[in-house]
């Protein structure tokens, strides 16, 4: 995408900004590729503490949040986002491969806008889900 371009190739809506907090470099790389190809502007962050800082800036439309990230866990990031930034614009989608107990998962789902198991989706399928988020 050209710098300064503000609409997707389809011209449907302004470029959407995605913050991807993910410590698995290969997965981050794949998501970055698929998201960029689909016209999203991606910011990658491998560290939980810096990820939280970025998320609190509220400069994103979507936050992809892995639960197992170093320094501050994904769950902690989610909780702090909800308490410190109750009117957060971004939709928070949990991306994980770690299966939670149902009660823990219910707790997470109450605070997040979505929950996906990474292995269940190819990057393109994940982009398809994000496209569907208003």
């Amino acid at each position: 995408m050209e710098p300064g371009q503000s609409i997707t190739p389809a011209g449907a809506r302004p470029t959407r900004r995605v913050l991807c907090i993910e410590d698995e470099h290969f997965i981050a790389e794949l998501y970055d590729r698929a998201l960029s190809k689909a016209g999203y502007q991606t910011t990658l962050e491998v560290d939980g503490a810096r990820g939280l800082e970025l998320a609190l800036s509220d400069a994103f439309d979507i936050i992809l949040l892995d639960l197992m990230v170093p320094n501050v866990t994904g769950i902690e990031i989610l909780r702090r986002l909800r308490t410190e930034k109750p009117d957060l614009k971004a939709k928070v989608i949990i991306t994980t491969n770690l299966e939670q107990r149902d009660d823990v998962r219910a707790d997470i789902e109450k605070q997040a806008d979505g929950y996906v198991v990474k292995a269940e989706l190819t990057p393109r399928e994940l982009v398809g889900i994000l496209d569907g988020i208003a």
Binding site: L30, L98, K118, P123
Partner: peptide
């Protein structure tokens, strides 16, 4: 088992991602 599944799923996520990238 949950941890083992996590360890299996992580490379699977990458494998599926890279296969898709190749296909594209």
């Amino acid at each position: 088992i949950a941890l083992s599944v996590h360890e299996l799923r992580t490379p699977l996520t990458m494998l599926r991602g890279y296969i898709e990238a190749f296909q594209e």
